[in-house]
Amino acid sequence: MNQPFLRFLLVSIIHTAAGLSIMHLLYRLPHVPYWQATLAGIAASAVISYILNRTFTFQSNVSIIKSTFRFIAVMIVCYYCSYRLSTQLTDWAALTAGIISPRLANNAAILLGAGFYTILNYIGQKQFVFFR
């Protein structure tokens, strides 16, 4: 593994823990709907992710304005693709295959989506946002 990827994983642990905590707290305690809870978690962790990845992971000198707009675009695409795919897979697992309880499908989708999001986000940030 290369060093930027290891740093990215460390940063990901930090901002993912924050994002997942917010998602689950919102989804479970005040029963905020799935899409709003996941969006709030991703948005809250975005600032941590941007700052740490810009300075620590990629040590980028790309302009803040340019990288911010690209970062937001990558986040939106990664968010939608990751959480759409995770809901489709967990719905299939619950409703078609009977692998998981339908009651737990959205909780499983949140965790699965976080994994998809991390992988897609690394690729997008490295190749599009903070490239040199």
Rank of each mutant, 00 (worst) to 15 (best):
S86V: 13
L26F: 09
V77Q: 09
Y83D: 09
M75F: 07
Y122C: 04
V77E: 11
M1Y: 15
K126D: 00
I99L: 12
V74Q: 08
D91P: 00
M75Y: 06
V11C: 01
L10A: 13
I76F: 05
T57W: 00
G98T: 07
Q3D: 14
H31C: 06
Y80S: 09
W35L: 09
C81F: 12
S45V: 02
T16A: 15
I14T: 02
I13K: 08
F56W: 04
M1G: 08
F131H: 15
V11L: 01
S60W: 03
W92C: 10
I119L: 08
G113R: 03
I42D: 03
I72W: 03
L20H: 05
L120T: 13
V129C: 05
T68P: 06
Q36S: 10
T68Y: 04
S86K: 05
N121Y: 07
I123W: 11
Y50R: 00
V74S: 03
T16R: 12
N106A: 09
M1E: 15
R7S: 02
A93C: 06
Y50E: 00
T96W: 03
V11D: 01
A93R: 05
F69H: 03
I110K: 03
S21P: 13
C81E: 15
V32W: 06
L29Q: 12
W92I: 08
L95E: 10
I48D: 00
F130G: 01
V129L: 05
R28L: 15
Y80N: 13
V129M: 05
S67W: 02
K66M: 02
S67K: 02
R70C: 11
A37I: 13
A73G: 05
I13A: 10
T118Y: 03
A114R: 03
P4F: 06
A18P: 09
T55N: 07
Y122F: 14
N106P: 10
Q127W: 13
A18C: 11
L25M: 11
N106Q: 11
M75W: 04
I123A: 11
F128T: 06
V32E: 04
N106H: 11
R54E: 05
S63Q: 10
L39W: 12
S67Q: 01
L25D: 00
F58W: 02
A43S: 10
A93G: 07
A94Y: 06
I42S: 10
A18F: 09
A93I: 01
F71A: 04
H24Y: 12
S12L: 01
I14V: 08
A46W: 06
F56P: 00
A114I: 06
A40T: 11
L26Y: 09
P102D: 13
F130I: 01
L29Y: 14
Y80H: 13
F71C: 04
G41S: 12
